[in-house]
Nucleic acid binder design. Sequence first.
DNA 1: TGTCTATGTTGACGTCTATCGAAACAGGTG
DNA 2: CACCTGTTTCGATAGACGTCAACATAGACA
Lengths: 122, 122
Amino acid sequence: MSNAKVLPLLEPEAVAPCCPPLNERPMSADEAEVAAKMFKALGDPVRLRLFSAVASHEGGEACVCDISDVGVSQPTVSHHLKKLKEAGLLSSERRGTWVYYRVEPSVLAAMGALLSGAAKAA
Amino acid sequence: MSNAKVLPLLEPEAVAPCCPPLNERPMSADEAEVAAKMFKALGDPVRLRLFSAVASHEGGEACVCDISDVGVSQPTVSHHLKKLKEAGLLSSERRGTWVYYRVEPSVLAAMGALLSGAAKAA
DNA sequence: TGTCTATGTTGACGTCTATCGAAACAGGTG
DNA sequence: CACCTGTTTCGATAGACGTCAACATAGACA
């Protein structure tokens, strides 16, 4: 329904300031709530495999029919893809009969910087 | 009690091969299950704040009394810290009256590389 | 030595959300 | 219209989150 305004994560200017490096300073409650949604989206084996399948596919986009081989039913796959899309990690596009999912590099970079910064100083 | 053998994630040689970059190839079910546990551990706002508080503290270790200011009761804090420890992200050590938690750099680096690698190529 | 206080952990319980599959529905093609 | 792809709805099961109470462990003090 109101998917377009569920999260402001799709905007790059909303991603960058949301995630200071983990070791810089203690996260505030608001920052943690935003960042936790992204981590939670990847906190499921099925979603992680789906996301990896999309990210490793040619051009960073993949048809659902190519990544439905994760051991669960297709409705469940659609459900997980929807959650990844709501978290801002994927974006869907319909090209004729098939639906293609694509990764969001900005959000991925934000999460990587969040962890890499903490790993560097530790 | 039997904390030492809950997960083999504490060994660096178990961390490195568990997480190929997300965009290299589709994750297997076993790899995804291991990596999802780490992401799931950070998929909660309270845990994320606790982890950030430990990581940003002096020397990467912090007493529980210093990070209990997250808006929940202390038993809840202890529960979340236990989950972070079970995921291999933290390690606890008792120094007298107080208990100090410390970050595990190797696991953090693995997660960062997992995402940074995917962000680079995407 | 014995007791008392303080710090963290653990267990049990209630509540809430997540996950998954079966069936029905929308979108697009030949 | 018949067919296929993918989404949505609905309900049932399982697990996560949070608090209250009780239990270990370490130091203080008489």
